[in-house]
Amino acid sequence: MNLEIGTELPPFVRETGLENWNRFAAVMDEFVPHHMDDEAGKKSGMPGAFGMGNLQSSYMHNLIRDWMGEKGRIRNFTIQWQQPNLKDTVVTARGRITAVEDTSAGKEVALELWTEDNNDRRLANGTAKVVFSA
């Protein structure tokens, strides 16, 4: 695995809409009208229904897990939401290595993370630290 600073993680990509959001609502018990109904989304000032912020967090975790495999462990994670995930857009979670450090626990890799849609809208920014055991 290439752990050089600047290396980009293989992106995690999903077409998003009610099929994803209803499944996430079902496991989170998050049946909020503006995530399920266009009219409710419009009342919240959006063009229609929009996705859950916590699903953006899961997409960033999926990105990290798919990249690190079972040898890595996520030590910490941060997220700041920027804009909502609009219906019928393609969301891509991306990441880049920003630092690598040898620690007593193993190699600790710092990541810059973000999600964006196919209209060049940044949805969320984040960071994480992953440790690969020696």
Partner: peptide, 9 residues
């Protein structure tokens, strides 16, 4: 406004 989340695992 949501100011973000920091998680330590």
């Amino acid at each position: 406004l949501n100011g973000g989340t920091v998680v330590e695992y």
